[in-house]
């Protein structure tokens, strides 16, 4: 590969001894160019990713008070064994579970319908269902809080009273708050996941179905043996981002209760981290929560990829 001073053309001819001025040659050489292109990335990676991650890990073993920092071993981690942390972990896990249960099958069904030949006005439906993804969680939260307000005349409660049910204090109790948070996430993400599945469906070669039809396969067989295997990479991708987003959840809870909710019914892991670090100035303990979150996400991600047999080119 020592051919810096030579150029190889497309047809393979080597142009010998192309002369560069010595000063220019290094910066402009083909060998250095890629490093120049990635240099800003490396600077940002080390400054804003590598350093902070290492520092979070170090801080999680420290007690940080104004003016004095001391190492306290695993004390911060020992403090994690408390009911508030369990509650945060429970809320986060339950939320993640429900978002996965809703945000994979429903968008898949919608994508399949939008991909059938019989369906009309596909672009219109696709666009309209995608629109909620354009809103921020906060705006979506404003809408949800108004629609699910406590008053009897608010949309959700007037709907219930129409069918003869009592009004519900949506925000005030654990189960209905979970319903609101999952509902909010589902409303915003349904369209995005639908687009992911649609893309996956459109990448299935039509000849596969035609060949199957010739072999006498019925609709169910085609779905079972062509659609599902081909959709596997997309499904793994959607599952992964839903899982990660679930454990990182913060905003969906914040719009209903900000940081402090009665009985911590709206506390999530990131909310707990934020509360300890920014409200109580417990940077060390906050970091321990962060590192625990990282470990949880890494383990879940690993298990999930093992179980689903991740392969980036499975569909091709």
């Amino acid at each position: 590969m020592r051919q810096d001073s030579n150029l190889i053309t497309k047809s393979g001819n080597v142009l010998k001894n192309v002369v560069y001025s010595p000063k220019k040659s290094l910066f402009y050489s083909q060998r250095l160019a890629p490093y120049v292109f990635i240099a800003p990335f490396l600077v940002i990676f080390f400054g804003f990713y590598f350093y902070p991650v290492s520092y979070t890990i170090i801080m999680s073993f420290q007690e940080i008070l104004p003016g004095q920092i001391r190492f306290i071993g695993f004390d911060n981690y020992a403090r994690l064994f408390n009911p508030t942390f369990y509650k945060a972990l429970y809320n986060t896990t339950l939320y993640t579970f429900w978002t996965i249960v809703i945000l994979i099958p429903l968008p898949l069904i919608m994508a399949i319908i939008l991909n059938t030949k019989k369906m009309k006005a596909k672009t219109f439906f696709r666009a309209c269902i995608f629109i909620p993804s354009l809103t921020s969680t906060i705006v979506a939260g404003v809408i949800f809080r108004l629609m699910f307000a406590e008053t009897e005349t608010a949309f959700a409660n007037s709907f219930l009273s129409f069918f003869g049910f009592d009004s519900v204090n949506w925000k005030q109790n654990g189960a209905t708050l979970m319903f609101l948070m999952v509902g909010l996430a589902s409303w915003r993400w349904m369209g995005v996941n639908m687009i992911y599945f649609l893309t996956g469906l459109q990448n299935i070669p039509k000849e596969m179905y035609e060949a199957a039809e010739i072999d006498g396969a019925n609709a169910f067989n085609k779905f079972r043996h062509i659609t599902i295997p081909f959709l596997k990479p997309v499904t793994v991708y959607v599952l992964t981002i839903t899982l990660f987003a679930g454990y990182k959840m913060f905003e969906e809870a914040y719009v209903f209760w900000e940081i402090n909710s009665p009985g911590n019914i709206g506390l999530t892991l990131v909310g707990y981290l934020y509360k300890e670090a920014f409200q109580y100035n417990q940077l060390g303990f906050g970091s321990a929560i962060g590192v625990t979150l990282l470990v949880i996400v890494a383990i879940l991600g690993f298990i999930q990829l093992k179980l689903t047999g991740f392969s980036s080119n499975g569909g091709k």
Partner: peptide
Amino acid sequence: LIMMIPFEILMLPLFRM
């Protein structure tokens, strides 16, 4: 790797930075 790391974990050191 960056895709995997939750931004929330970087928050505290980044804030100090």
